[in-house]
Design a binder for these strands. Structure first.
Lengths: 205, 205
DNA sequence: CGCAAAGCTGAAAGTCGGTTCAAGTTCGCG
DNA sequence: CGCGAACTTGAACCGACTTTCAGCTTTGCG
C-alpha cells in the first residue's frame, strides 16, 4: 500500500515538485479510504479532498475525473494484491504447498485491507474493463503456475485455465466469508481445509 | 422469471385490481431489464417506466423508492436462481452427480439470464444485507446437502460449511467466465471438468 | 347507471455532487 | 531577490435524477 501512484496520475497532470507528489499521495490514500468505506457512488470528491486536507479544486489538478482516479486505484490494488500473493508463495517446496500459503496470504490480506477487496470487486460495476484486466492477469499467472507444476509431475493432468478460474473463485469467496464477513477461523486454517478439499477431492476412498 | 412479484410490492401499496397487478408485473420486468443492462446507478426510474409503457408517477403508486424495488428484485432473483438449481439437481443418483448437474444448470442459467447474475452481484454494493441473505441461504442448503451425502458415506469427511463456500465461489466465477464473458465451452463440459477437479483432487495418484 | 376507490399522468420541486475557473499563494531556479 | 511555473483555493455552475402531487381517467360493484 506504499506504492500508490505510479500508474495513478493522468497523463500531463503528473506533479513536478515534491509538494505536488506529496499531495497526490495524500489524495490517493484518502480516495482508497473513501471508496473503500462508502463505495464508488456514495463516495464524494469533497470527502476525498477533506480527508486529504486539501481544497476541492486541487483534486482536478491531478485527476481528470472521479472515474479516472477510481480506475487508477483499481490498477494499483490489483497489482498490490497479486504482488502480495506472489511474495507469499515464493519458495514454496511444491505446488500444493504454494496453493496453501497463497490462499492463506490472500485471506489474511483481505482481512487487513478490506477496502482493497471492495474496490476491486466494485470495479465490476464501475470500470468493467479494469475488473476483467485484474482477473485475466490473475488467471494468466495462475494458469502458468499450474501448467509448470503439471509438467513437473506435481499435480494430476487437467485443464489449467479452467482450474485457475475455479481456484480463484474459491479463494475470492473464502476471502469474503472468512476475511471480510466473519473472523471465526484463522486464514491458515481456512487455507488448510480448503486446499485439503482441492488436493484430495470429495470422492471417498 | 415468471414469478416476479410475490415479495416485490411494498406493504400498503399492493395493487387491488387486475389492471394494477398487470402494471406491477410490467414494472418489475422493465426494472429487471433496466438494472441488468445499465446497473443500479445508471438505471433511471424514467427508463423503467418508459420500458414498461407507463408514466413516471405510476412507479410510486407501487414502490416506495428505487432501492426498495431493487431489493425486491434481488429477493425474487435469489429465489429463482436457487429454485432453478434445486430443480436441476432433483433426482440425481448421488452427490457427485448432483454437483455436476447443479453446476451445469447454474452456468447455463447465467448464460440465459445475465441480468439476473448482474443484479445479484451488484446488490453487494447497493443492498449488502440482501446480498448476504442470498449467499447465506445458498450456503445453508448446500451445506445440508453435503452433510447428508457425507452421512450416507458418498463423499469423504470434511467441513461442510467451508466446502459449501468454496464450491459456491468456484461456481460463481465459472458462471462469470463461461456464462457471462465468453461462451467458448458448453456449460456441461465446464461442469464436467470442474467437478472432476473437485471430486478427484489435484494430487497426483 | 352512478359513484367511490383505484389507478394513472407528467410537470415541477428539490437535491446533490461532479466539474470549472479566475484569482491568490508557494516554490525553486538563475 | 525576482519572476515564472507549479500549486492551491472554494464559490458557482450545471445537469441529472429521484420524488411529490393535484388533477384526471378507469374500474368494478350495487
Amino acid at each position: 500500500m506504499n506504492d500508490l501512484g505510479q500508474t495513478a496520475v493522468s497523463a500531463g497532470k503528473a506533479p513536478r515538485t515534491e509538494r505536488g507528489r506529496k499531495t497526490v499521495r495524500k489524495l490517493l490514500e484518502a480516495a482508497a479510504q473513501e471508496f473503500g468505506e462508502r463505495g464508488y457512488h456514495e463516495a464524494a470528491i469533497t470527502g476525498i479532498t477533506t480527508r486529504a486536507g486539501v481544497a476541492l479544486g486541487t483534486f482536478y489538478t491531478y485527476f481528470e475525473s472521479k472515474e479516472e482516479l477510481f480506475r487508477a486505484l483499481v490498477r494499483d490494488m490489483s497489482h498490490a494484491t497479486r504482488a502480495h500473493v506472489a511474495e507469499a508463495v515464493r519458495g514454496a517446496p511444491d505446488r500444493l504447498a504454494a496453493e496453501r500459503t497463497g490462499l492463506a496470504a490472500f485471506i489474511a490480506f483481505t482481512r487487513q485491507h478490506p477496502e482493497l477487496y471492495r474496490i476491486i470487486e466494485e470495479s465490476q460495476f464501475v470500470a468493467e474493463d479494469a475488473y476483467r484486466e485484474h482477473y485475466l492477469s490473475f488467471v494468466e499467472g495462475y494458469r502458468d503456475g499450474l501448467a509448470a507444476a503439471r509438467a513437473r509431475g506435481e499435480i494430476a493432468e487437467g485443464p489449467d485455465e479452467l482450474r485457475a478460474w475455479a481456484l480463484i473463485g474459491m479463494s475470492v469467496f473464502l476471502g469474503m466469508r472468512y476475511g471480510l464477513w466473519r473472523h471465526d477461523m484463522e486464514p491458515a486454517e481456512v487455507a488448510d481445509r480448503a486446499i485439503d478439499l482441492v488436493s484430495e477431492g470429495l470422492r471417498k476412498r
